[in-house]
């Protein structure tokens, strides 16, 4: 089963995303801060990571960057979740190495679609 790591300090979003992805047939690990996400990803690299940008400890951007710098995780597909999508923010996100970017408020169904699309691109 495809493993997905979800990191978001907001309990509602974390549970929601985990629920939806599990419903769609994925194996989900959920953490509530950046450092835990990094540790979990390094310990057992998932097939895809969903990161909230604003988190205590390390931000999603920082985690993304760290994952890209680390050889064992540099190929991981990463999707960022954020509340803001003005020009500069999108640049920062992609600049850090993210594969896709979802703006909050988001549609859970769309999230699953995006996840599947990124995974498909990855396999190709």
């Amino acid at each position: 089963m495809t493993a997905i790591l979800v990191a978001d300090d907001d309990m509602d979003i974390r549970d929601l995303v985990a629920f939806k992805l599990e419903q769609a047939g994925f194996d989900v690990t959920a953490v509530d801060n950046g450092l835990a996400a990094l540790t979990a990803a390094r310990l057992e690299p998932p097939d895809l990571v969903v990161l909230d940008v604003m988190m205590p400890g390390m931000s999603g951007i920082d985690v993304c960057r760290e994952l890209r710098n680390d050889r064992s995780t540099s190929g991981l597909p990463i999707i960022l979740l954020t509340a803001r999508a003005q020009e500069g923010d999108v640049e920062v996100g992609f600049g850090a190495g993210a594969d896709d970017y979802i703006v909050k408020p988001f549609s859970p169904r769309e999230l699953v679609t995006r996840v599947e699309a990124v995974l498909a691109r990855q396999r190709a």
């Binding site: 408020p105 549609s107 859970p108």
Partner: peptide, 8 residues
């Protein structure tokens, strides 16, 4: 506040 579309 956090979701949109059908969910909302």
């Amino acid at each position: 506040n956090k979701v949109r579309g059908e969910a909302r």
